[in-house]
């Protein structure tokens, strides 16, 4: 920062007050809820915590959430790369509209996404009769959970990779074409090294969002205990069962994933552009 220039707010007292206010509010408003999760999860000691985590229902919820993320994140990475490649490296009519459509899931409430899916695949939905005739179960089962999570996370990788690809232009790729490289070689040897950090960051964000999805999944999963109960839904279930320590123990695993995402972001900061 330009420390020498007499910018406003450079009076020492004003600066101290503003910093104090910012730190104080953030500690109360953001750090406290984060710390409280672990404080409550471990409030009855390690043994109770371990027993809560190792409860079969909790383990099943962890497994279901993991499976969902393992399906959704790779698909989202592929989609993000495809969308970024199409929009950043080529000119075609409707590019602006395409970018807006990619952003849509970001501004639509997950609950609405869930309702959309129910109206499409549910028993009374548009495809309901056909699905039933063919004995396919989408709603209240894994496919529904995966689909709605794909909706909610759709923009996550694309919005990290796309701006970077646009900023980098395509001179390097053009040069590779001139030198006779094929599409796959251009992508893996030229483009991918340029975007790898942004791609990793997008994938981490997508993972955090996928494992934490609540609203949309709660519409399409039917909350069947031990069957379609993902980890965030399990947190709510334990909370409604008045098992607060259990709810916080389950929540702490999700919080750990969030913390990993934040640390990854901090570590990648400044590297993304390289």
């Amino acid at each position: 920062m330009s420390a020498a220039s007499p910018l406003p707010g450079q009076s020492r007292r004003g600066e101290s007050i503003l910093i104090g206010l910012a730190v104080g509010l953030t500690l109360l408003f953001i750090a406290a809820p984060l710390a409280f999760i672990f404080a409550r999860a471990f409030s009855r000691g390690w043994e109770v915590y371990a027993a809560n985590i190792l409860h079969p229902m909790t383990l099943h919820a962890i497994w279901l959430t993991t499976i969902t993320a393992l399906i959704v994140v790779p698909l989202n990475v592929a989609f993000g790369i495809a969308a970024a490649w199409a929009v950043a490296k080529h000119r075609f009519p409707g590019r602006g509209i395409l970018v807006t459509i990619i952003e849509i899931p970001f501004s639509i409430s997950p609950i609405i996404a869930g309702i959309c899916y129910l109206l499409l695949y549910g028993r009374q939905g548009l495809l309901g009769p056909w699905l039933q005739a063919n004995d396919l179960q989408v709603m209240f089962a894994l496919p529904g959970i995966v689909l709605v999570t794909m909706f909610v996370t759709a923009p996550f990788v694309a919005r990290e990779v796309l701006p970077l690809m646009q900023a980098q232009g395509s001179e390097q790729e053009q040069a590779a074409v001139t030198l006779g490289a094929n599409g796959w070689q251009i992508f893996t040897r030229v483009t991918l090294p340029n975007i790898k950090w942004a791609l990793l960051y997008g994938a981490v964000l997508c993972t955090a969002r996928a494992v934490g999805e609540f609203g949309g999944v709660s519409v399409v999963s039917g909350n069947i205990r031990g069957q379609t109960n993902t980890l965030p839904l399990h947190v709510e279930l334990l909370f409604n069962d008045l098992n607060a320590v259990g709810a916080f123990a389950a929540a702490s695993t999700l919080t750990l994933i969030a913390v990993v995402a934040l640390v990854t972001k901090a570590a990648l900061e400044g590297r993304k552009g390289t």
Partner: peptide
């Protein structure tokens, strides 16, 4: 830098976990 990183907590933290923690808090 920690303060800056804390700004992203609400995005990274699942909303159900945030709700649970705020309610108990």
């Amino acid at each position: 830098r920690i303060l800056d990183a804390l700004m992203d907590v609400p995005f990274a933290l699942p909303t159900a976990v945030a709700g649970l923690s705020l309610t108990a808090l």
